[in-house]
Amino acid sequence: MKHNITLRIGPATFRIGSAWPQPIAQLAQLYAAYPDVRGAVADFTVRLQPTNLLRRVLRPSIFITGDHGLADAAPMSLAHGLLAAEMGMNLQMALGWRRHLLLHASSVEKDGRVLVMTGESGSGKSTLSALLGERGWRFMGDEFALLDCDSGAILPFPRLVSLKNRAIDVVADAVGEARMGPLLNATAKGDIRHMVPRSDAVARMDQGGMPALLLFPRFGHAADVRTLGQGEIFMRLTQASTNYVALGEPAFTGLTRFVRQVPARAIDFASGEEAFAMVDRLWEELA
C-alpha cells in the first residue's frame, strides 16, 4: 500500500498500510521514540483500506483489517484514522498472537515485580496504569498483559495509551501536552486521546517481570476491597483472554499457576487518590 510504517511494540512487529497519508503520519510522530524497525519482517500486517473504491476520496471511510480481520467491523471516519490503526494492531494481537497468553489487562512494574489490573472497558485499569506510570512505577501496557506460559513472567506491550472522555484531562495534566496525541472527537467510544508512554517504558519494553499482585479495579463506586475465589479469578481471566483456547494446554498450565500463586483483590474506588492509596497498601501487604 502507498502509505505505510513498521512498528515494534514489545515482542510484536506490525506492518501498517493505509490508503491515506494522515494515519501513518500521526503514527510516525507518536511512535518516534520506539525502535526503528524499517526493513524488519513483521509478525502482522494491518490494512486501513477504503470500504469501497469511491470511499477513498468521497467521505473517506476506513475499513480496518489485515492478516486477521472481522468481516462485519464497522467502518470509521478518516478523522479517526489514528484510532483505526491502533484498533487494527489490537485486532491482530487479539486474534493472532500465540507466543504468550494474552490478558486484556493493564500492567505496571516496580522492583522487578508486576502489578496486573484487569476489568471491563471503563473500569479505570487503563487510566490507573497510565497514572501509576507517572508515580514511580514502570508502565508496561494499558490494554494487553502478556503471560509467558513457560516462565510465568508478564511481558510488556507498551503501545500508546488510549484515554477516553474524563480520563483525558486528568492524564494530560499529569504528563503534559508534549506527550499527548490529537483529540479524536465523538468516536464510537466517545472522545479519545492517545498518550505516549514515558521513555523508560519504551526503553525497557523487552523486560518482563514476575506477577506479584492481581487487581480487578472498578472506578465510580464507594471504596471497597474484596477477595475472590480462585475459581472465579480463573473464569474472569479466561474471559479476559482472547487466545486461551488457541494456546491449548500451555495456557491451562500457565493460567492455573498464575491463579494459584498471585494474590488477587477486587477494588472499588471513586477517585484517583483513593485508588493510589489502595494500590500502595495492597502492594505493601500482599506483593
Partner: peptide, 15 residues
C-alpha cells in the same frame, strides 16, 4: 527474499 519479500509472502499466505 529480503524483508519486504517475506512480508509479501506471509501476507499472501495468510490471506
Amino acid at each position: 527474499l529480503d524483508a519486504d519479500g517475506w512480508n509479501r509472502l506471509l501476507a499472501a499466505a495468510r490471506a
